[in-house]
């Protein structure tokens, strides 16, 4: 589904991603861990198409199409979704109108007519139930005055509404209370299927007990330095990142 080859990206001339290789197949869940500042959100941003990032090398194939060639909105319409580490507040745009617009623009892209009001409301209700999302938040401005956890849950709720092929969740767990973590995880598990995939960025092994990944990768200094299965997350939880950093230093060529 997603094939990242030797991806390099820079912001304002600073190299941030330095040769990422990652292959995600339909039906898989990949977890990405790594110390602060290692480039996890940057990778998510580059995949979603944030303009501040300049791709300097490499390629990304998304279901047979060149992802890097698409505008952010086309990527979303093609089925890529990013749940943001820091969802923005947009005063004056109502949550519900925003969702309706998004749903219908995606439908239009696929040659489908706009959703009928009734059908939209039904879908809204069923996804609210799935994600146990507070219906009162729907009529407010997009994320305005939402608590940190409410913003995260709103993003996950949007994901449930838009039914993406590939969802990238950037630290969705940070800021969620214990119950919310369980609820959101359960929702994600219900959305998992053989035709979609997830990339889950997290610092904590705890989330991965709820959403069990097929693979775990460690991103460090703009590169994936180690990949493994869910046991790797346990090992990291226990030992931290220092042992990996040591290993890498030994591998790096002497300057």
């Amino acid at each position: 589904m997603l094939n990242i080859k030797n991806l390099h990206a820079a912001v304002e001339g600073n190299a941030i991603l330095k040769g990422i290789n990652l292959n995600v197949k339909a039906g898989e869940v990949h977890a990405i861990m790594g110390p602060n500042g290692s480039g996890k959100s940057s990778l998510a941003s580059v995949l979603a198409g944030r303009e501040a990032y300049e791709v300097t090398e490499g390629s990304v194939d998304f279901d047979g199409k060149d992802l890097l060639d698409m505008s952010p909105e086309v990527r979303a319409r093609e089925g890529l979704f990013l749940a943001f580490q820091y969802p923005v507040e947009i005063p004056g745009v109502s949550n519900i109108n925003f969702l309706k617009t998004a749903v219908n623009e995606i439908r239009a892209y696929h040659g489908q007519p706009p959703m009928q009001a009734k059908a939209f409301l039904d879908m809204l209700k069923s996804k609210q139930k799935l994600m146990e999302f507070d219906a009162n938040l729907m009529n407010r401005s997009l994320n305005e005055g939402f608590s940190g956890g409410e913003k995260k849950r709103n993003d996950v709720f949007q994901m449930a509404m838009l039914e993406p092929k590939l969802a990238i969740m950037d630290e969705t767990d940070s800021g969620l209370d214990i119950d919310a973590l369980r609820i959101v995880s359960a929702g994600v598990n219900k959305l998992r299927g053989k035709d979609n995939a997830f990339i889950i960025i997290t610092h904590y092994q705890r989330l991965l007990e709820y959403i069990v990944p097929d693979f775990v990768h460690v991103l460090y200094n703009g590169r994936i330095v180690k990949s493994g299965t869910k046991e790797l997350a346990l090992e990291l939880e226990e030992k931290g990142y220092d042992w990996l950093k040591e290993d890498i230093r030994l591998e790096e060529p002497v300057q």
Binding site: E51, F98, T101, L162
Partner: peptide, 29 residues
């Protein structure tokens, strides 16, 4: 706001419509 614009686009909303939404949000206050 570029961040707001990106947020809307990342949900599939086209550039013109996203700008339109943000301008209206500003005005409709």
């Amino acid at each position: 706001s570029e961040d707001a614009l990106f947020y809307l686009k990342a949900r599939g909303i086209g550039d013109a419509e996203a700008r339109n939404m943000l301008v209206k949000a500003f005005a409709f206050d």
